[in-house]
Design a protein around this nucleic acid. Structure first.
Lengths: 110, 110
DNA sequence: CCGAATAACTAGAGCGTCTAGGCATCGGAG
DNA sequence: CTCCGATGCCTAGACGCTCTAGTTATTCGG
């Protein structure tokens, strides 16, 4: 039983949420599922992490929400990426790349 | 003036410190310099981040410290990686790799 | 002589994620 | 028909880590 890595590093969750929403509007619970699926079951975002994060992200104008229904006919709040959100996603991906590069460099050291 | 990325993601600092010490014993201030240098000036660890982290890491038995002197003849506390620290470094590198892989997967999604 | 760099340390703020709940609806198993 | 798990939203509070912003002391160069 290989436990998936649940705990995320602070700061990566926003990027993942924005990325998930960049593939199309989705409701909160669906964001969790999409991230889980896209990551190959490696990332399991907790609801208690997601909803506060979505709220924060909406406050910053990176996503917009509206109430609607899922295909299965359940009430759900649909989130859509805004243009500012797209920019933010690019910023965070860039930031991640630079950090990852820096860490690669440190780890290459003998 | 390209500002180096100062802020680290939570959890990466331990790995960087352990990695720095895996190259040989060093004092706190030197750890900052070594990480800065190895990362190609991309990572700037704050003293206020480092010293608490070193204390925490020592409490967990991953490093040992003793007072000594630097080559320039200054008093300094020298930190040495323990065997448990080596193992922990491997664990954290593995954990990082898995997270990085998962994020790559999510980002590849179209 | 004085400022910058080296060296160690602390208090407290700030932030984000997690644990651990609560609530409601729906489908399927028994 | 009943109960449980999955879906769906949410909150409070704990927790952990890094940062800001200080303090103290020594050494070296200009």
């Amino acid at each position: 039983m290989t436990e998936p890595k649940a705990d995320l590093l602070q700061g990566t969750l926003d990027m993942l949420i924005l990325k998930a929403l960049s593939l199309g509007p989705l409701h909160g619970y669906g964001v969790i599922q999409r991230i889980h699926q896209l990551s190959g079951e490696m990332l399991a975002v907790e609801q208690g992490s997601l909803y506060p994060a979505l709220y924060r992200i909406e406050q910053r104008g990176w996503v917009k929400s509206r109430w609607g229904t899922t295909e299965t006919g359940r009430r759900a709040k649909l989130y859509t990426l805004t243009r500012a959100g797209e920019k933010q996603l690019a910023v965070e991906e860039d930031s991640w790349d630079r950090l990852a590069l820096a860490i690669v460099k440190v780890r290459q050291a003998t």
